[in-house]
Design a protein around this nucleic acid. Structure first.
Length: 562
DNA sequence: ATTAGGG
DNA sequence: CCCTAAT
């Protein structure tokens, strides 16, 4: 029998799942805001991961609401750091001086914790955003005849404009982050510099769930001011179960079937911590820059002027052993960043969320003009990585920007099993791409505790690959329902799909539902592999029959009860 | 674990 | 397909 969300408390291969008392769903889902315990240290790295997760969430939610350019407000409460001894300065002193790595908060008069938070927020907005943002200015002509202004041109210029960023103080920023094991202002500062785009566009809060190696569980700063988003951070436990289930499920054919790692896995689990940073840079939809008074404004060759605040960058994946030195962590982070920035970069052009593929059309033809909505113009960086797992059976090689590592271990395997090809036409979703600095053991990765957003990510990626019913399957289903009736899906499953592990009775039920619908609409409206009309007729007949049959049963039952 | 139905 | 409520 196929199990999806079952908990195996026996643990597998030495990995013991935490026993969680079950409560009603409504209660379990509720996560009460919890104040941080006093004096608890937050590792900067974990904060980094948390912020990254938060930003990821922000970016995801922002897809549907791109117009909410609100500043990110990071509600991280610095627990340990002390500013009492710091003199108070004026705020304006350091604004715009990002290279100053001194704790920025000391510039503000110290009061209580809450004001600390505010200060952090202020700092990030004023400082970091400016930095990267002002570095990229691009100008392109709208008219091809005047200037070579195809998309390739834009892309080239974009890369050139990006170049300064490489040498620019990114490294210092990152390293200053890593230097602080205890949460300090500079830590959050770095995060935000990495996500400067979000800083300028989103408002949110950060919740940090930290679990230590002994499964203790802390929740920090659950300042959920936003009502439009579902809280994340209350599902770490569930995430564990998820992972375990995934590994043990026959449906989810995740590649890593653990060998006999036994205690090895466990010790590993205690040794390592996973930092899973995913970042989504919302492709900058920069507003028009304002050059209306310029003399060069003719009617003939209008130019498209815009600036790029930041780029949508694929996720960063960083894994570091807990026993590693801080220095090596620095290098790992640096590697991940440089790998993106120095690798073969491609620039994708997005217009209204859709990728512009034709490099040869003019901006005008594509609809990119100063008059039109330049806010919807965006760019993505698309590193091209070496194929991690070339699958000979894969008929269609995914574009370099598409997910390579992520959950494709599973997908690839399924593809091979079924000969199916997953075509990711979600061009706007070129997010999942990992930079793995060091060789990564997927088996271990799956067992290592994952941070919250990783869980979410993992779960999201676990949607089963679509498997359209074949005609023969439909035939079998129809036959079974004809004899057993609609509603006895478990019996239908056992009768006709007992050996098809990937078809649950829910699937069969759903399929029947769609079959009935398909049969009742005109052939022109149907999609997918056409189902023979005679089968559809049988569907309708069976549906009608069993509907009536059900009615009769109900009537009888009613008479009996009355 | 199954069933029913909405998303 | 997924998710949930209700059995």
């Amino acid at each position: 029998m196929v199990v999806k969300k079952r908990i195996y408390y026996g643990g597998f291969h030495g990995f013991i799942a935490p026993v969680i008392p079950k409560a009603p769903r409504s209660l379990r889902r509720r996560s009460l805001p919890t104040k941080p315990s006093q004096g608890t240290e937050i590792c900067a790295i974990e904060l980094l991961a948390a912020v990254a997760g938060k930003l990821l969430q922000e970016s995801e939610s922002s897809i549907s609401s791109t117009d909410k350019h609100e500043p990110l407000e990071v509600k991280v409460k610095p627990v340990i750091s002390e500013h009492h001894d710091q003199g108070s300065g004026t705020e304006s002193q350091h604004v715009g001086q990002p290279t100053n790595l001194d704790p920025p908060l000391k510039e503000f008069p110290h009061s209580d914790n809450d004001s600390n938070l505010e200060r952090a927020s202020v700092f990030t907005n004023s400082d970091v955003t400016q930095k990267i943002g002002t570095n990229l200015k691009i100008e392109a002509s709208e008219d091809k005849t005047v200037v070579n202004d195809t998309h390739s041109e834009i892309q080239r210029e974009t890369i050139e404009a990006l170049t300064p960023v490489k040498s620019y103080g990114l490294k210092d920023e990152v390293e200053s982050c890593v230097n602080n094991r205890v949460l300090k202002k500079s830590a959050s500062r770095v995060h935000l510099s990495l996500y400067s785009d979000h800083v300028s566009k989103h408002r949110g809060n950060v919740k940090i769930d930290i679990r230590d190696d002994d499964e203790k569980y802390f929740r920090y700063n659950h300042y959920d001011y936003s009502t439009r988003r579902r809280a994340f951070g209350s599902r770490s436990r569930a995430g564990y179960k998820r992972i375990r289930n995934i590994l043990t499920s026959r449906y989810r054919k995740v590649a890593p079937k653990p060998k006999d790692y036994g205690t090895e896995v466990r010790s590993f689990y205690h040794k390592r911590k996973n930092i899973y940073m995913r970042e989504q840079y919302q492709a900058s939809k920069r507003r028009k820059s304002f050059h209306h008074n310029s003399k060069t404004t003719n009617t003939k060759d209008s130019h498209v002027k815009f600036s790029i605040k930041s780029f949508k960058v694929p996720e960063l994946y960083v894994e570091v052993p807990e026993t590693a030195t801080v220095g090596s962590l620095k290098r790992s982070v640096m590697d991940a960043i440089t790998a993106i920035l120095q690798g073969q970069l491609h620039v994708g052009v997005l217009l209204q969320g859709k990728k512009v593929r034709d490099d040869n059309r003019t901006l005008e033809q594509t609809g990119i003009s100063q008059k039109s909505n330049l806010e919807t113009l965006g760019f993505t960086l698309e590193p091209s990585l070496p194929e991690s797992s070339p699958s000979p059976l894969q008929k269609e090689t995914p574009p370099p920007s598409s997910p390579v590592v992520d959950n494709n271990l599973e997908k690839n395997q399924e593809n091979m099993n079924l000969g199916e090809v997953v075509t990711d036409e979600q061009v706007t979703d070129s997010k999942a791409l990992m930079i793995v600095p060091e060789a990564l053991d997927p088996e271990i990765l799956a067992v290592v505790p994952l941070s919250e957003k990783t869980n979410k990510r993992f779960e999201l990626s676990q949607r089963r690959t679509r498997r359209p019913f074949s005609v023969s399957e439909v035939e079998a289903l129809v036959e079974a329902v004809e004899t057993l009736g609609a509603g006895r899906w478990r019996d239908v499953k056992m009768r006709a799909f007992d050996d098809a592990n990937h078809r649950t009775y829910v699937d069969l039920k759903d399929k029947w539902k769609t079959l009935v619908h398909t049969a009742s609409i005109s052939p022109q409206q149907r999609r997918g592999e056409p189902v023979p009309q005679d089968l559809l007729d049988r569907v309708l007949a069976a549906h009608a029959y069993w509907s009536q049959h059900q009615c009769k049963i109900n009537e009888k039952q009613q008479k009996i009860t009355v």
